[in-house]
Design a protein around this nucleic acid. Structure first.
Length: 1052
RNA sequence: GGGCGUAUAGCUCAGCUGGUUAGAGCGCGAUCCUGAUAAGAUCGAGGUCUCUGGUUCGAGUCCAGAUACGCCCA
């Protein structure tokens, strides 16, 4: 059995019959199920984690389609813009940064980017198909399409009209040499430990205004610490921790304000505390600026709100002075904005000190070189408390090793904070799997929402549709190609909406009638592309307006946890901004797949598992099944190919074996499902009860977006079907003529297999299809053409006989104990025994299943033990669940009292408990009344039997062997060995034989009594005793009496 | 540094509102069963449930703190 081969055949059959297309179109349009495909970029190879993600998407889509719904949005989608794409191309072209791109030409560069995003498209499509993630790959949405971009423009215009689009500073990590901002990812690559930097403590002299503490802190100075003296000319404020304690301390005749926790470290032990304050009280105090503040590009700036103390949680007391110098332009922009501090500048984008500081002698210096000069200047001004050097971690450009600047640049923002409450409220309407994301990671993120910095000074992306007047700064946001054409006065039909073509249209500003409207150079954050996909994939509102009414909000999406602040957020933000509703109703947030050692898979570690390797070896279904069954997909999980192999053997092969058992005999008997179901035996009713319970549960689980629990239920069921139902019923399928009982066995197993094929369809589409085609379509051409267009099974609740299921569970336990008892007594199962004694838990009886028990254990009779028969004694334990609440602290003593009951007391108690009556015990001087349910009663082993016990059950075997039993045992040994011989001789199961038993052992009595039995069991026509003839296959078997030779020959 | 999550047998994972001897599968050893089985059964070896403290008659489970790892953010 090769699953990969089977899958290839099924895939070919799907292809030949157009099944994927038919299925995608299938379903009741009045019951839509909307799915959003989170677009991957195809400029890298798909990994095994993509198999996980795509399987998780597929299973829910398939399931809902099988509920009869019409799935909308099952189409491919490709994310094509963004910095990662640009970097990839830069690398290929050997570029060192933006100047190289400008030199090369934006047209050519963007053409290269457009090309590069498809590098691995074929592999993505192949893998998507191979693992049967059924989406329309012929009509994907592509984020660089003009139509897609036009929808984004429409969104920008909406936002602008509602005043949600604005321009402000944003701190970026800037390389002064390359003249570009770096992405977080790039910055992370360039941190260097042990960077030698200055470490200076600065005095900020208090200035009295109208503050309550003015008098107290008169003539004192705030002490702040920094390792970047070059930012001091841009200082706009000082920050303290609102909850920390600060002191006014005297040191060398000077007064300083520092955090109490750091006073020793900063001022030394000799400092004396004059007064102390809570941080929040210092808020609003003012100080004398060190430098004259300078605005952006040297512009004059309103300084009325500058040079004061603010209080914020972010201030730490671990190092420094507990007072933090704030330079909004160089890293503290959020704080500056939060407290209304102006954004002052000291160096420009090339890292050179601004010319405004000319008179101080350090203008034009590179910021690192300016550090000592600035420090000396401060010393001369008396503002330096002390200085030194420090080794710490600092970021450098990963390309050119230049130290990076935190730099506030003008940037475009979407004012998401204006809709913070709506974002939070809409999140409450989303069903998160797992739940904790909703209030945890995602909820917290929304609570701390900051405006969305939407612009990037890059090339390959959706151009912001913002035109600005070069004279009066008037802004015009363009919402469509048509609008652009109108303003520009030219036809835009063939205009590529990418730089540099989109930069060409200009027009006269009608606000000032002097300037020219020119597009700002920025492109959009590519997260905006994917967050807007619900709208842009349909080119809404320019097309598909009716469809969008339904398709604009997803029933289901799924991606990995790293998308919380990525796609999950951008979808949510765009949908809330535009429509004030969540973009998706249900979301499964996958955990990451880790490698065999628990490490993250990454290219750099070289521990990526290729999906192809696993899929080719074990098949897509095995991989899919592993993804669903191996654990909750939202937990991080370890992955290795061996684990897939295990899950294949464990589940798919067991199922397959059960299925081949069925087909083998159905073929022998020419059985078809178009006949009456026959007389159901108890075990048939059990199987159908379990099956319908399974259907009910699996349906319910999947409805709740749980894919792991149903996978485990299916594993459990298939295991029981194979190892109990089939094993117990082999005899019913084998040999006898067709009758009501055999019919019942066939139809029961058939029903189970057909139902499983449908239940499995969302999980393992190939195997499910194979079973379905052979079991259903081969008999019924009117059935749905593919299992994937069939309806998901519905449970017949009337068949779920819980009582029978419970009893069968008990029976299985008794069987298991019986096998253990046989093992303990050294009694092989083939040797019949005379009697088994079984003590069941109180109130249980298994009379109607006793035949199953004696047959399975090969024991002639079953005797149920009761309290009155004197064979066993009893012992008691408290039933903690009920007794704990009643007796509390007495429980330990009660446990001892019960354990120490005399045999008379125990027998007496057993009689009472057996009838459901209560009994009394003395515990620590108190008389406690114990109801029957307050204790657990266990039977103790009777003497002289082979015994096993557990879970309230006791099984004891009578091991005395009579001659009669021994003869039967020998007969069974012979049957077993003859059947082995048949197998060894490669006979078909229906071949008839002649058999010869050797004469080494006297078997006259056995043969006389059991010849018919042996012949029937082995399809033997003639059974003789003597020497095997020359044409017979011979073998030898061991009996207690000695060796016995066997010979068999096939009857032609 | 912050938020969120994870930690149970050699491996991969269950363990419901606190309850009796903490389970399953794989792997290992032994024995057995079997004309569907690449399977299965029984027994065995393998656990200080990451650590420390607390609540409780009772903690893998609840609370607090710590450690390690992952993701996101600084």
């Amino acid at each position: 059995m090769s699953f990969p081969t089977l899958e290839d055949e099924i895939a070919a059959w799907w292809e030949a019959h157009g099944i994927v297309k038919k299925t995608l179109a299938h379903g009741d349009a009045s019951r839509p199920f909307v799915f959003f495909e989170g677009p991957p970029t195809a400029n890298g190879r798909p990994g095994i984690h993509h198999v996980e993600a795509r399987s998780s998407k597929d299973i829910m889509v398939r399931f809902n389609r099988m509920l009869g719904k019409k799935v909308i949005g099952a189409r491919g989608g490709w994310d094509t813009h963004g910095l990662p794409v640009e970097l990839e191309v830069e690398k290929k072209l050997g570029f060192a940064g933006k100047p190289d791109i400008e030199k090369y030409g934006i047209t050519e560069f963007n053409a290269a980017c457009r090309q590069s995003v498809w590098d691995y498209i074929q592999e993505w499509e192949k893998l998507t198909q191979r693992i049967a993630f059924w989406i329309d790959l012929e009509d994907p949405y592509i984020t660089y399409d003009n139509k897609y971009i036009e929808s984004l423009w429409w969104i920008f215009k909406q936002l602008n009209e509602r005043e949600l689009l604005y321009r402000d500073y944003k701190v970026t990590m800037h390389c002064p040499r390359c003249g570009t901002s770096l992405s977080d990812h790039e910055v992370a690559q360039g941190y260097q430990d042990n960077t030698d930097d200055p470490s200076v403590w600065i005095r900020f002299k208090h200035t009295p205004t109208n503050h309550a503490l003015d008098a107290q802190v008169a003539d004192a100075a705030f002490l702040a610490w920094t390792t970047t003296p070059w930012t001091l000319p841009a200082n706009a404020g000082l920050a303290v921790n609102p909850e920390a304690t600060y002191v006014l301390a005297e040191h060398d005749g000077q007064r300083y304000i520092v955090a109490e926790a750091l006073v020793g470290a900063v001022l030394g032990e000799t400092a004396t505390t004059v007064a102390s304050f809570t941080g929040v009280d210092l808020q609003g105090l003012r100080y004398t600026p060190l430098f004259a503040g300078v605005g952006d590009n040297g512009a004059a700036i309103d300084l009325s709100s500058a040079y004061r103390v603010v209080a914020d949680e972010f201030v730490s007391l671990e190092d420094g002075t507990g007072i933090v110098h704030i330079a909004p332009a160089y890293g503290d922009l959020e704080i500056g904005r939060k407290y209304g501090l102006p954004t002052l500048f000291s160096v420009d984008l090339a890292g050179k000190v601004l010319s405004s500081f000319e008179s101080l002698g350090f203008a034009g210096l590179f910021f690192k070189e300016a550090d000592p000069k600035i420090t000396r200047h401060l010393k001369e001004q008396g503002a330096l408390f002390k200085s030194g050097r420090v080794l710490h971690t600092y970021p450098f450009c990963w390309r050119c090793k230049t130290p990076l600047l935190f730099y506030a640049k003008q940037s475009w923002y979407i004012r998401t904070t204006a809709l913070k409450q709506q974002l939070i409220d809409n999140n409450k309407k989303i069903n998160w799997v797992p739940e904790h994301i909703q209030t945890g990671r995602f909820g917290n993120w929304l609570e701390n929402n900051i405006d969305w910095a939407i612009s990037r000074e890059r090339y390959w992306g959706t151009p912001l549709p913002v035109w600005a007047c070069d004279n009066c700064q008037h802004i015009d946001v363009v919402g469509s190609l048509a609008e652009l054409g109108e303003r520009w006065g030219q036809d835009t039909a063939n205009l590529d909406l990418h730089r540099p073509f989109v930069d060409a249209p200009t027009w006269a500003c009608h606000a000032c009638e002097a300037g020219t409207m020119q597009r700002i150079p920025d492109v959009a954050d590519c997260w905006f592309d994917s967050g807007a996909m619900p709208i842009a994939q349909w080119h809404y509102p320019f097309e598909n307006q009716e469809l969008f009414e339904v398709a604009g909000q997803a029933d289901y999406i799924s991606e990995a946890i790293d998308q919380t602040r990525g796609w999950f957020y951008t979808l949510h933000a765009v949908s809330t901004l535009l429509f004030d509703r969540p973009a998706y109703k249900n979301v499964i947030c996958l955990g990451h797949l880790l490698d065999g050692k628990g490490d993250k898979m990454s290219k750099s570690k070289g521990n990526i598992v290729s999906p192809w390797e696993v899929v080719e070896k074990y098949g897509a279904d095995a991989v899919r099944w592993y993804m669903f069954a191996a654990g909750q997909p939202y937990n991080p999980r370890r992955f290795s190919a061996d684990l897939v192999s295990e899950s294949l053997r464990q589940f798919l092969l067991t199922l397959w074996n059960t299925y081949s058992f069925f087909t083998t005999y159905a073929n022998v008997d020419g059985w078809t499902p178009a006949v009456a179901q026959g007389d159901l035996a108890a075990i048939d009713r059990w199987a159908l009860a379990r099956l319908n319970g399974l259907v009910r549960d699996v349906r319910n689980d999947l409805t709740n977006y749980d894919m792991n629990t149903p996978a485990k239920r299916l594993e459990q069921f298939v295991d029981e079907l194979s190892n109990w139902y089939v094993r117990r019923n082999r005899r019913r399928f084998w040999g006898s003529e067709m009758n009501g009982d055999k019919q019942a066995a066939y139809s029961t197993l058939y029903t189970c297999l057909v139902t499983i094929s449908k239940l499995l369809a969302p999980f393992t589409p190939f195997v499910a299809e194979s079973l379905y085609q052979n079991l259903v379509r081969s008999y019924d051409q009117n059935a749905a053409e593919s299992v994937h267009m069939a309806l998901f099974p519905e449970a017949d609740l009337a068949l779920i006989d819980d009582e029978l299921i419970r009893k069968t569970d008990l029976l299985l336990k008794a069987v298991s104990l019986g096998r253990a008892a046989r093992k303990n007594a050294g009694m092989r199962v083939r040797q019949p025994l005379s009697e088994v004694l079984v003590r069941l838990p109180r109130g249980e009886q298994l009379d109607e299943l006793s035949a199953e028990l004696s047959d399975e254990l090969n024991i002639k009779s079953v005797r149920w033990l009761g309290v009155g028969d004197g064979l066993v004694s009893y012992r008691f334990k408290p039933n903690l669940r009920s007794v704990g609440k009643k007796f509390g602290k007495l429980v330990p003593a009660l446990r001892e009292v019960l354990a120490g009951l005399s045999s008379e007391q125990a027998a007496d108690a057993a009689h009472k408990v057996e009838t459901g009556a209560s009994f009394e015990v003395e515990v620590e001087g108190q008389t406690l009344t114990l109801a029957a349910d307050d204790v657990l009663m266990e039977a103790s082993s009777p003497e002289g039997y082979a015994v096993a016990e557990g879970e309230g059950l006791l099984v004891a075997l009578v091991t005395t062997l009579t001659d009669e039993l021994l003869r039967e045992g020998i007969a069974r040994e012979i049957v077993r060995n003859l059947n082995d011989a048949r197998k060894a001789a490669d006979l078909a199961i229906t071949d008839k034989i002649n058999a010869t038993l050797g004469s080494e052992v006297d078997l006259a009595a056995v043969v006389a009594e059991y010849a018919d039995y042996i012949k029937a069991e082995t399809l033997c026509e003639n059974l003789s005793v003597g020497d095997a003839s020359a044409n017979q296959h011979t073998s030898t078997m061991e009996l207690e009496q000695g060796k016995l030779s066997l010979g068999i020959s096939k009857i032609a």
